[in-house]
Structures are given as C-alpha cells and as structure tokens.
C-alpha cells in the first residue's frame, strides 16, 4: 500500500492477459464505494494503455501508476 493514499481494496491481476485485467477491474471497482480507492496489480504491459482508456471511458480516475519490474500498480478512484 502506498503511504500517502488510503486503499480500500487490492486486486491481484498478475499473469492475466487482455482482456481480463480490465474485465476484472470493472467488476472489482463496484465492491468499493464512490470516492474509495482500489489498488490493482497487473503484469500485462498492455494495461499501461488500457487502464487509462478504461478509466476515461467508464468515468473513473487513475490517481497514480507505479511500475516496479514487471509489476504495474494502478491506484484507481471510483467516481461513478
């Protein structure tokens, strides 16, 4: 968990190729309230482009993206 951000749910989406990370996160975000934050971990390099596109289209917000080695961490705020 990031020190400066309160995370309400963590999703492990490592090892999943397209379209599963986006499919799972679109479902998972419904488990938190509007205004809450989920942290999603992926290893699919395509998700670097896909998550922002999904967020823009679905009306949610990516607060931060961290990449350490193969793992990409997205901090996503549910807005709708």
């Amino acid at each position: 968990m990031s020190a400066d951000m309160k995370v309400d749910k963590v999703m492990d989406l490592k090892g999943m190729p397209c379209p599963m990370p986006v499919v799972k996160v679109s479902k998972g975000i419904k488990d938190v309230e509007v205004g809450q934050v989920i942290e999603a971990h992926t290893t699919d390099p395509g998700s670097l482009a896909d998550f922002p596109a999904w967020a823009r289209t679905s009306g949610n917000e990516i607060l931060k993206t961290d990449q350490t080695g193969d793992v990409i961490k997205f901090y996503i705020k549910r807005k709708v």
């Binding site: 397209c18 379209p19 986006v22 499919v23 996160v25 679109s26 999904w54 289209t57 679905s58 009306g59």
Partner: peptide, 11 residues
C-alpha cells in the same frame, strides 16, 4: 469475444 467482454467492461 475479447472485444465484446472488453466493451462490456468499459460500460
């Protein structure tokens, strides 16, 4: 199916 489920995920 990838496109269909992806689109559904995008709302």
């Amino acid at each position: 199916f990838v496109i269909a489920t992806g689109a559904a995920a995008m709302g």
